[in-house]
Computed example of a mutant assay.
Amino acid sequence: MGGARSDRVRRARSRPVRLAIGLLAAVALLLGCGVLSLLTGSEPVAFGDVLRVLVADDRSEPAIIVHDLRMPRTVVGICVGIALGLAGALMQSLTRNPIADPGVLGINAGAAFGVLVAIVGLGIGSFTGYVWFAFLGATLSTTLVYAIGGRGDDSGAPVRLALAGTAIGAALVSATEAMVFLDPKAFDEYRFWIVGDIAKPELGVVWQLLPFLLAGTVLALSLGPRLNAIALGEELGTALGVGLLRTRVLVGVSVLVLAGLATAAAGPIGFVGLAAPHLARAVTGPDQRWVLPYAGVFGAVLVLLADVVGRVVLPSGELRVAILTAIVGAPLFVALVRRRRAAA
């Protein structure tokens, strides 16, 4: 008996070390995906050339490809993936809803609608200009989804929230289509942006993204202990000194910042926020202090891998990131809904 107990104690003490090593391995995987992103494209660049142009300042063809095209694309992909992975993990934890996702619950659609208002209605074409409209649209859609899906005896049930998000998303898509028809000149810019992609980022977008990403990430990671306490039950969480309303507000602010900046920078990319937290929990278990950083890293890996595959899967041209994430994420969404229905 004593030996079994001591083994459990040793395993419990060694678990943080193993998770930390696993997180470092995940970061190493992300760096490898970043290198792969720099190497892959219609004009392949040798690994040696990539290393050379990263440390040397020249204007050779490989340097132009890496610095002007693939480096901004890779960094934006990492930022967007981290933001979506963290946003999805926060939503799934707070709502105890395994299918919660900025796309499924209508946040992406709301942010997209806000950006389109800026582009079509006000002629704003820069990230710093329309990111605020993305935040406003995301806030509006989130409020509507929870106002509709959170009513009734089964308020906050996964299916109710998913259906409310789908309905709100469909309404916002209809509104955006109407706006495009009213301003045909904006069609090309809207068509590229609404598909969801990181293929043509401006170099300045990288630096404009970072303050929002850092603020949202720091806030998200700081909420891990609070979310662990709430997971024990709202009454016990309150007894442990966690303010439920304050936690919900902070989670909402973090999700809106992260999902809003991701949508503003790359368009609405779905299912990354759904899949990344599930991958994280498969490694870490339910401890949100570890789920959150793992979900951010896995989200970035998913976006970069989708972007790399999209560059090479077609004989000519590229397949957008959002299309590939939907191909992978839609079956996962169906499987999760079916599993929850069977459990119920």
Rank of each mutant, 00 (worst) to 15 (best):
V313H: 07
V180T: 15
D49N: 09
L219P: 00
S155T: 10
A100M: 08
A199G: 15
W290R: 03
V75D: 08
G285R: 01
C33Y: 04
G48M: 09
Y146P: 12
G149V: 05
Y146R: 12
T263I: 06
A220H: 06
T40M: 12
Q92Y: 07
A178N: 10
V242M: 01
L227C: 03
M1E: 11
V253Y: 08
L163T: 09
Y294W: 02
R70P: 00
H278M: 03
P211L: 11
V313K: 02
V321N: 05
A220D: 01
R13G: 13
L182F: 06
R226I: 02
D101C: 08
P62C: 04
V131Y: 05
A147W: 15
W207R: 14
V159G: 05
V131E: 04
M91Q: 09
M1F: 12
L214H: 01
V131G: 01
A109N: 00
D153T: 15
V120N: 14
I168P: 00
V242H: 06
P184A: 11
S174K: 11
A231L: 02
G169N: 06
A322K: 03
S141K: 06
R96P: 04
L105R: 09
Y190V: 05
Q288W: 01
L36N: 09
A26D: 09
V218Q: 06
L240N: 00
L319A: 11
A342F: 14
S14G: 13
G32W: 06
V145L: 11
V53C: 04
S222T: 12
T139H: 02
T74G: 05
L279I: 09
L39A: 15
A147L: 15
